[in-house]
Nucleic acid binder design. Structure first.
Lengths: 157, 157
DNA sequence: ACTTGACTTGGAGTCAACTCCAAGTGGTAT
DNA sequence: ATACCACTTGGAGTTGACTCCAAGTCAAGT
């Protein structure tokens, strides 16, 4: 329970340790190190050999998380991050990449929505089968028609 | 240009060849064989050693596609497909699995929407940077505030 | 009968994205 | 001073999902 002494005063003046980054991002230390090695996190500083992450690094990890969720490969993310170290002359390229990502994300959104519609039909199907048995749903077209009637939802396989 | 003879009359009376399945599903022949080996497609028939896929098999592949898109591992899909071969006594279990999938799909939908919001901000950010330079956006909080003002969209990192 | 081409099998190889390990180090607490 | 523990590195191993290959088979057309 010590007040900081002369030397450790600047200890936590800036930046996060790797374990703090794990808490804040949900990524494991191994993964954060792996990302750095793979070029996804350029410019992580060291103090006494240890990694010290900046606020910008934290924002970068959050962006990586978004890009990954829309299916962007780590190699492409690394390329993007490399561009961010190049200032204004890489802005056009970065804009282009983000526009492509926007399209990809919208496409993925549509896919998941279609999948969800299918799964919701399956839930109804098995709820009905649990009550009435699978036999009454044997005719798939009739089952789909009944699903539309009962739920008001539009769905066809 | 032959009319079917006595023997080949029933040739295509029922079912699809593997190449027809590739066309209809977008999956490669290797992948369809791999899925069968992994237990995702139980009950594929043979004629003269060759696979003959039924309408039910086609529907199964379409369901696999949905489940995969919501992030379900192939092992879990195989388990689900095994249950579908067991009739009414597996309905409760199947319902349970589909309800879990519904939750997973909705969660994924929310994630992609959040990612898309982030990416749309980035597109605006680089569009603005392309016109005015990165310097005017250096203060991230100010940039976010300007983004909300200019686009009417809600977003914060 | 012979060629062609789409199919079969088992098994090996590839790829992305981690995940784990062993040996060593630096700052803090007793 | 010593022990502790979170951290460091390079590199090997794992997992999931394919993808490719070699050798063989079957049915249809010439």
């Amino acid at each position: 329970m010590s007040i900081m002494n002369n030397k450790s005063q600047k200890k936590n003046g800036e930046g996060y340790s790797i374990s703090q980054m794990c808490e804040r991002t949900g990524y494991s230390a191994d993964t954060l190190r792996f990302y750095e090695k793979a070029g996804l996190l350029p410019g992580v500083k060291r103090r006494g050999g240890r990694r010290v992450y900046s606020e910008a690094n934290l924002l970068a990890v959050k962006l990586i998380d978004c890009l990954k969720k829309t299916g962007m490969p780590l190699g492409d993310i690394a390329e993007f991050m490399r561009l961010t170290t190049m200032g204004d002359k890489s802005v056009k390229k970065r804009l282009e990449m983000m526009r492509k990502r926007e399209i990809a994300a919208k496409a993925q959104l549509a896919e998941i929505q279609a999948s969800l519609a299918h799964i919701e039909f399956k839930v109804w199907y098995y709820e009905t089968a649990a009550k009435e048995g699978l036999a009454v749903l044997a005719d798939i077209e009739a089952a789909l028609e009944r699903y539309r009637r009962e739920t008001g939802r539009e769905f066809s396989i």
